[in-house]
């Protein structure tokens, strides 16, 4: 295998939403939410790195998002990725899965010689699980979704297990292919101290002082950026313009107070709770 591309997204940490992440008017305060490496994309990266451990494959991580997304690209370098790309452009903003997959597939084509693309099953901000398959379709790659384990690495194929809900399918898939992996696939490795020392200062060129860029470049610390022009793709198919779906309305979900009736934790009180239940739910 020559080259593996991992698709990784930076997402708001929706798992740890606390009081201060909600504003007083009940809307989500995005600024108060830490941004994290999408959890399943860590498994996608580990999947690629574990192939790299066994072969001489190069692992390239691609993330589309605002410049802040370099944070997860640095994490990827710390874990052992060979190369990372930040895909960013104002014109990419507001993309739904169709427009996102259009851009990402163009990036994979631009990188070239890619035998394998690994994506997370889904991103925790949108939970759509659509971007992976839509990239596969645009590239014309075979796809296997819900990959739960990597079982064997061949020259031009991989053996993986797919969670098909009612059964596990052990699949030989010919390369090139795109896989979406679940959190069951592996345990992501820790960042290595050596890589952290090497890449600690890495960033996109615009983040360095103008007179330092060249030096940073020489030291391999500049994270390359790909924009719409670099990719030479159709602006009509990118961002909001290229997105067939539109967000029509957003409502914040509040805890709707139930008509909570509390019972004490003593036998008499528990007995009356049981009677309430029996009345309605237990057939006698």
């Amino acid at each position: 295998m020559k080259r593996i591309v991992v698709l990784a997204k930076q997402v708001p940490d929706t798992a740890n939403i606390t009081g201060d992440a909600m504003k007083e008017d009940g809307t989500v305060n995005r600024a108060a939410l830490p941004a994290v490496f999408n959890p399943e994309d860590l498994h996608a990266l580990e999947f690629a790195l574990s192939i790299k451990d066994e072969t001489d494959a190069e692992v390239v991580v691609v993330s589309m998002g605002p410049p802040k997304a370099v944070e997860i690209l640095k994490d990827a370098l710390y874990m052992g990725a060979d190369k990372v790309y930040l895909v960013t452009d104002r014109k990419f903003a507001g993309a739904d899965t169709l427009a996102t997959s259009y851009v990402l597939s163009a990036v994979v084509e631009k990188i070239g010689n890619v035998d394998l693309v690994v994506a997370g099953r889904q991103a925790i901000d949108g939970d759509t699980a659509q971007v992976g398959p839509q990239v596969a379709e645009k590239l014309g790659y075979a796809q296997v979704t819900y990959v739960d384990s990597l079982d064997a690495i061949g020259d031009d194929y991989l053996t993986v297990s797919r969670d098909a809900e009612y059964e596990t399918q052990v699949i030989d898939v010919k390369l090139p292919a795109l896989l979406t992996v679940t959190e069951n696939a592996n345990i992501p490795r820790y960042p290595s101290a050596r890589h952290m020392l090497t890449y600690f200062k890495s960033n996109i060129a615009s983040a360095f002082e103008a007179d330092r860029v060249e030096k940073a470049e020489k030291m391999g610390l500049v994270i390359p950026v790909l924009t719409l022009d670099d990719l030479g793709i159709d602006p009509e198919r990118c961002g909001l313009k290229g997105s067939p779906t539109k967000v029509h309305a957003i409502k914040n979900i509040q805890l709707t107070g139930g008509d909570l009736q509390l019972f004490e934790a003593n036998p008499t009180s528990i007995k009356s709770l049981v009677h309430e239940i029996m009345k309605d739910y237990v057939e006698v």
């Binding site: 949108g126 759509t128 699980a129 659509q130 398959p133 796809q143 997105s243």
Partner: peptide, 23 residues
């Protein structure tokens, strides 16, 4: 939104260049 539905629907939407709303 099953493992099969979520595998196929995005491919079909991508070919037909139309919107797909999950879950």
């Amino acid at each position: 939104a099953t493992h099969t539905g979520r595998d196929i629907a995005p491919l079909v939407a991508s070919i037909l260049k139309t919107g797909l709303t999950a879950d």
